Simulated assay, not measured.
Amino acid sequence: MRWLLLIILLAGCSALPLSPGPQVDRVPTGTLDAASARTSLAALVVATPGRLDGYVRDCADGQACVFGQPWFDTDGDGCDQRSQVLARDLSGVTRKPGRCSVQSGSLDDPYTGTRVTTVSKIQIDHVVPLAEMWRSGAAGWPAEKRVAAANDLRNLVAVSGKVNQSKGDKTPDEWMPPNASYACSYSRIYVTVKVAYGLSVAPAERSALEQALTSCG
């Protein structure tokens, strides 16, 4: 048992779930409430997702980089969006001396219900994936709007890197947080972003969101 506890501590990510509690409701500022999310979802344009032609996220070696450099400092305060989300979502945050970068803190990961205590194991998820934004309207936007959308704090949530990688570019009909108690909050965030940017929604995607929003208390 001692060895198991040591392994958990060294890994920086607890293998044990957080204490059971009520429905998780940690969402970014500006997220629609459940009733507004349901109404707004019903008003979204329903359309088959477009193609990914022209979508290139990578910015290395002169590639297209259609959503701009990752974690752009949109408000010019010297702190990029990754640092801002970490400072918002983690507890016990310490920063690198003289810098905005977060060097330590603890995350109660809403997607998994586990605690992550190593910052390098934390990633920032775009709740509405950028590839999905591209397919549902962003392909026709000017570059400035895509950069703003990619760095919109309403669409960014700190989560464990492992679960973020498992999600990838999947939409709610393909993937929902393993922590079922976060389904309502996740769907509210998702709908908020779709509405804010006038993005379309696919039939299966809308059905999955409608189902998840029924779990809202």
Rank of each mutant, 00 (worst) to 15 (best):
I8E: 13
S136W: 08
P110N: 09
S91C: 06
S207M: 06
Y55K: 00
V147H: 05
L156M: 03
A139H: 09
L5A: 14
D169R: 00
W141I: 12
I189L: 02
R206M: 09
P178W: 02
D125K: 07
A37E: 02
S207W: 08
P17F: 11
F72Q: 08
P178I: 01
N179C: 00
S40K: 12
T214N: 06
G198S: 09
G78Q: 04
A42H: 09
G12D: 01
E205H: 06
M133F: 15
D61P: 01
G140P: 04
G168R: 03
G76E: 13
Y111F: 15
N179R: 06
S215I: 01
S200P: 05
S120H: 07
Q123A: 15
D33C: 04
Q103A: 10
D80T: 07
M176G: 03
R26F: 10
P28V: 10
T171P: 00
T39L: 14
A64S: 12
S106Y: 06
S36Y: 11
R115G: 11
V66W: 05
Y111L: 10
S19N: 08
D80Y: 03
K170T: 00
Y190N: 05
A158G: 11
L6N: 02
A138L: 08
V191A: 00
K145R: 12
T118N: 15
Y197T: 04
S19F: 11
G168H: 05
R38A: 04
G21R: 03
Q165R: 00
V27R: 10
V127S: 09
K145G: 05
D61K: 06
N155Y: 12
S36K: 13
A212I: 01
A202Q: 12
Y182L: 00
K170I: 01
R26E: 11
W134P: 02
Q123P: 11
S101T: 10
A183P: 00
L130Q: 05
L41F: 13
A143W: 14
T112V: 09
V128I: 02
N164K: 02
D33E: 09
A35Y: 12
V201W: 09
A34L: 04
N164W: 04
C184F: 10
A180R: 10
D80N: 08
T117K: 03
S181W: 01
H126M: 10
A149H: 07
L32G: 07
G113F: 05
I122D: 14
V195A: 14
V193C: 04
R38E: 07
W71P: 01
S101W: 13
L18V: 13
W71S: 02
A180K: 09
R99I: 01
L52I: 09
S136T: 14
L41T: 10
L10V: 14
L86A: 08
W175H: 02
P49S: 15
S136V: 07
D173W: 03
T117Q: 15
A35P: 00
P17D: 02
T29Q: 14
A42F: 10
Y197P: 03
R99N: 14
Q84S: 13
V191H: 01
L153G: 13
K194Y: 08
R154L: 12
C100L: 11
I8W: 09
F67P: 05
P142N: 08
R2I: 10
A11C: 08
P22M: 13
G92E: 13
I189Y: 13
A60D: 11
D80C: 10
P172W: 12
